[in-house]
Nucleic acid binder design. Sequence first.
DNA 1: CACCATAGTTAGAGGTTATCACTGAAGTTA
DNA 2: TAACTTCAGTGATAACCTCTAACTATGGTG
Lengths: 218, 218
Amino acid sequence: MVNSEAKTPRERYRAQVRTEIKERAWEQIATAGASALSLNAIAKQMGMSGPALYRYFGGRDELITELVRDAYRSLADTFHAAAQAGSGVTGLAQALRGWALQDPHRYFLIYGTPVPGYQAPDDTTAISSEIMATLLDACAALPSDGPSTPFDAHLEGHRDWAGGHPAPPAVLHRALTFWTRLHGVLSLELAGHFTGMGIDPAQLFAAELDDLAGPPRG
Amino acid sequence: MVNSEAKTPRERYRAQVRTEIKERAWEQIATAGASALSLNAIAKQMGMSGPALYRYFGGRDELITELVRDAYRSLADTFHAAAQAGSGVTGLAQALRGWALQDPHRYFLIYGTPVPGYQAPDDTTAISSEIMATLLDACAALPSDGPSTPFDAHLEGHRDWAGGHPAPPAVLHRALTFWTRLHGVLSLELAGHFTGMGIDPAQLFAAELDDLAGPPRG
DNA sequence: CACCATAGTTAGAGGTTATCACTGAAGTTA
DNA sequence: TAACTTCAGTGATAACCTCTAACTATGGTG
């Protein structure tokens, strides 16, 4: 018998209830944000009473941690798929934006305001570097490169985060700015800071992407 | 008698208590984040009992709104001071970073994950455009300019947010990217996404700033 | 001094997370 | 089949939270 999946019926049931709880949690997060996530409400919605959920999750924080993990996993999968589609960094960027717009609260759960005491568990940083790896691959495939900047020199000495990826500093730099710039536009868009301004976030995003994927800056 | 300030002793007292409440609220936000702000705790800390605070603020939301307003005001003042110091966009950028690092939660209160039901009152958007105006002034003083991009054309038709500032689209574009790019680096830094990576956020920020203030991109 | 607007109080409704002791049912073993 | 063990779900309870309502007491003002 295979150890990994579907062992005892009890475990099957347990896993099913766990995923249903998470589904309800996602619904709740999608409508009201992570701060409004209520174990009580989820329990009531599932027809059972409050403390029952503590059989499945140690508490609110543990549930949120699990959701963060799932969100990271989802983004990593999206990135992998986009990378395999082979449309380079622009494909990755569009995949990122699509993923973010599909559920803004999920994006904020990862990249938004950090919750007070919470800190990401180790495996999320593993998934995070997985994401970074596919981004680095895409950036390495771009035509390189402009003059070396002082920051490139700094990166030469601090490339641990790249997980041993054999890319020149300029590529690391590009991946980093890809991340920060697109996050800059995206997070402001999702937070609604452009709504009152009348400008089109998609075009601003595209402009940043053009500047990123196009010219090796000089 | 002057209408504007220090009228009756009661109003003086009232204003004093209001500011003390806000001070405590800021302390609380600085340590535990905005989501953990508790009127009850503030009241207890001030030696009075819960509901007393409702004489001074309509509720939690109204207090937070006030804090958001103050945060905007503080940032606008910081920007004005930096602009008057006359060190251009780099001065503005450094002022922004210093202001953000001085109290990260205050930054997130403005530019972080939007709180569920809350939406900014009108006057905060007024302050926001005040900030944008000084940024536009600084950007207009930069040497211009590269080739016109498609997004510049879009901005030509959507420049309402600039509040009638007489700047060419390229300058509007630059101000916008100044905002989004620096916010990208800054928000990720404040959220701690660089801590495990070993890179220096200050240098990444500086690199983005160089790219922004230096070459009219091509 | 008398009056009254208002600051602050307690009580309470309704919400939350979380722990505890208990019940009852399901699965396991003799 | 009968006995036993494990565990899901329960209600009660504690300790918080926001916010409303009614009441008291005090300070400023006619």
